[in-house]
Amino acid sequence: MTISKEELRRASVDARLKLTVEEEERLLTDVNKIIQQAKSLINLDLQEVKPTFYGSEQKNFLREDIEGISLKNDEALANAPESDQFYFRVPKIVEE
């Protein structure tokens, strides 16, 4: 199992991150080293083992449908890089 540069590039687009050529090379090498280190684990037959996705086994509970306090508009927008009256502003959606 070897990860290709193409797969790595696809993943970085999905993570919305751009790596420099050197960083990309470095990551590709490291990733394949890690995969190599983990080879014995990856090949273990764990079909009967249930995954653990959570930090604890505590059971969850529900809240009632009762309105609480929301932020004021100026609080909501306080850290916004760009805002426009009541709104957050973003560059146009359509890619050209």
Binding site: R63, D65, I66, E67, G68, I69, S70, L71, K72, N73, A76, L77, Q85, F86, Y87, F88
Partner: peptide, 26 residues
């Protein structure tokens, strides 16, 4: 419902924009 799925912000229709928000739903 009166409130959102995971936080207690109102779901009422027609409020001013970004006034029914909290740290969780933002």
């Amino acid at each position: 419902t009166k409130t959102k799925l995971f936080c207690s912000c109102s779901t009422a229709f027609g409020a001013e924009p970004n006034t029914q928000v909290c740290p969780i739903c933002l």
